[in-house]
Simulated scan of single mutants.
Amino acid sequence: MTRKSAIEDVALDLFASEGFEAASLGKIAEAVGIRKPSIYAHFRSKEDLFLHVFKQALRSKKRMMLRHLLENRDRPFEETFLSLAKRLMDDNESDAQTRFLLRMSYFPPSSLHDQVMELMNPFFMQAERLLTSLLERPLHQTRLQTGNAQEAALAYITVLEGVLAEAIYTTRDKATRRLEAVFPIYCRGVLINK
């Protein structure tokens, strides 16, 4: 592992667990086993390090979501969507990158709010397009009540955001309870009754 990647890994863990303000460059350097000025050989500032790690986390999460949707594209989409929500809740508990991404998406550092939103908004637009394209497949399109794949995708993202916010603010059990309550209602709203 290179020194730069070690700095990124430690920064990710500290940003995820302590937040941007509490994760000082001094703490990061100490955990890596280097002196604080050594960080500046790789990153211009704490903000630069944060944005670099944030972009990496977004790319990784985008790849994970794409892989999940591609691997499950021939299953009923409600099963795929439910398993994706559960996967993200699992990852929030077990994966620092997901915890970091979710925490900083909801609570970005005030000094970096605009930059974080400039990265998140295209991410959500890409997620909406990806989900819409899945729902537009004939296998799924014929099962939608309105036939409007984009509306069904956007509604799912809204459900997912609520569940993930619950996971961040409270506990996995409460988030699971919310998912179990809202997901059948989502399905009744978008699926044709047969």
Score class of each variant (00 low, 15 high):
4 K>F: 06
5 S>A: 11
6 A>Y: 07
8 E>M: 10
9 D>E: 14
9 D>N: 13
15 F>P: 00
15 F>E: 00
16 A>R: 00
17 S>E: 14
20 F>Y: 08
20 F>L: 06
24 S>W: 01
27 K>A: 09
34 I>M: 06
36 K>R: 13
39 I>W: 00
40 Y>G: 02
41 A>W: 14
45 S>R: 07
46 K>S: 09
46 K>G: 12
47 E>W: 01
48 D>F: 08
51 L>K: 05
52 H>Q: 11
54 F>P: 05
56 Q>K: 14
57 A>L: 00
58 L>C: 08
59 R>M: 10
61 K>P: 04
66 L>G: 10
66 L>C: 10
66 L>A: 15
66 L>F: 12
67 R>I: 04
67 R>M: 10
67 R>N: 12
72 N>V: 04
81 F>A: 01
82 L>G: 09
85 A>K: 00
85 A>Y: 01
86 K>W: 09
87 R>C: 14
89 M>E: 03
90 D>W: 09
90 D>T: 04
90 D>E: 09
94 S>V: 10
95 D>F: 05
95 D>A: 05
96 A>S: 08
98 T>R: 01
99 R>Q: 05
100 F>E: 01
101 L>Q: 08
103 R>W: 11
108 P>I: 01
116 V>Q: 08
118 E>D: 12
120 M>G: 12
124 F>W: 08
126 Q>D: 13
127 A>T: 07
127 A>S: 12
128 E>V: 07
129 R>E: 15
134 L>I: 03
136 E>T: 01
142 T>Q: 15
143 R>S: 14
144 L>M: 10
145 Q>W: 11
148 N>E: 08
149 A>Q: 04
150 Q>E: 15
151 E>I: 15
154 L>D: 05
157 I>C: 05
161 E>R: 15
161 E>G: 15
164 L>V: 05
165 A>G: 10
166 E>N: 05
166 E>S: 11
166 E>R: 06
167 A>T: 06
168 I>Q: 02
170 T>R: 08
172 R>H: 05
174 K>P: 03
175 A>G: 00
180 E>M: 09
180 E>Y: 08
182 V>A: 04
183 F>S: 03
187 C>R: 13
189 G>T: 07
190 V>H: 00
192 I>C: 07
193 N>R: 15
194 K>D: 11
